[in-house]
Amino acid sequence: MNLAALRAFDAVLSTGGFARAAERLNLSQPAVSAQILGLERMYGVSLFRRGLWVLRLPSSAKRWRRMCAGCWASCATWNISCARPAIWSRGN
């Protein structure tokens, strides 16, 4: 699993577009598109229905959206858990 590609997927979802996601991530729009395409090819799913002005989510992407949210929650928990020993070792 490529976390950078998942981050790009999440950014496209939350911003509503590839260009805005690229701006948020400080990447080029083609780089974001390539990351999404890589996920789609790796897992054999279509994550977005691309229209001229609108992105739509197929049912497979809706499931990915839920899994992505769970992934970020797990990462946040992991970061907190890993930081605690460092805090404790400083005497706090």
Rank of each mutant, 00 (worst) to 15 (best):
I36L: 04
Y43P: 00
W72R: 14
C75Q: 11
R50W: 00
L39C: 06
L57C: 04
L25C: 08
L47E: 10
E23D: 09
P30T: 03
R63F: 09
Q29Y: 01
K62I: 07
R50T: 06
I80F: 09
R56K: 08
A31C: 04
V45I: 14
A69N: 01
W78L: 15
A69R: 05
L27C: 08
W72K: 10
R84I: 14
G38W: 02
N26P: 00
R66V: 12
W64H: 02
A34E: 04
R41Q: 13
S59I: 08
S33D: 06
F48D: 10
V32N: 11
P30G: 06
G38T: 05
W53L: 10
C71W: 05
S81R: 15
A61L: 03
V54W: 04
K62H: 02
G38D: 08
W78P: 00
T77G: 08
V45M: 12
A61M: 10
G51C: 06
P58G: 04
P58E: 03
W64C: 00
T77I: 03
P58K: 02
G70Q: 06
A69M: 04
C75N: 01
F48T: 09
S60R: 11
C82A: 08
R24A: 12
R84K: 13
F48Y: 15
S74L: 08
L25H: 14
G70T: 01
G38L: 02
A83N: 10
R84D: 02
I36C: 00
R84W: 10
C75T: 09
C82Q: 09
A83Y: 11
E23Y: 10
L37S: 07
F48Q: 10
W53T: 15
W78E: 14
A34N: 09
C68D: 13
I36F: 00
E40P: 01
S33T: 04
S81V: 12
A76K: 05
A61S: 15
W78V: 10
L55K: 13
G70K: 01
I36R: 01
M67F: 12
A61Y: 05
R56Y: 03
S33E: 10
A83W: 08
I80S: 14
I80Y: 11
G70H: 03
Q29K: 13
S74K: 02
G70S: 05
G51N: 05
N79I: 13
S33C: 06
R66Q: 12
V54C: 05
R63L: 12
E23W: 11
L52N: 00
C68A: 15
L57K: 05
C82D: 08
L55N: 09
F48N: 12
R65C: 07
L37Q: 07
I80C: 13
C68T: 15
S46C: 09
A76C: 05
A31E: 13
R65L: 08
W64S: 04
A34I: 00
A76Y: 05
V45Q: 15
L27E: 07
R24Y: 05
P58T: 03
Q35W: 03
W64L: 04
W78T: 14
G51M: 01
L55H: 14
K62A: 01
I80E: 15
R41A: 13
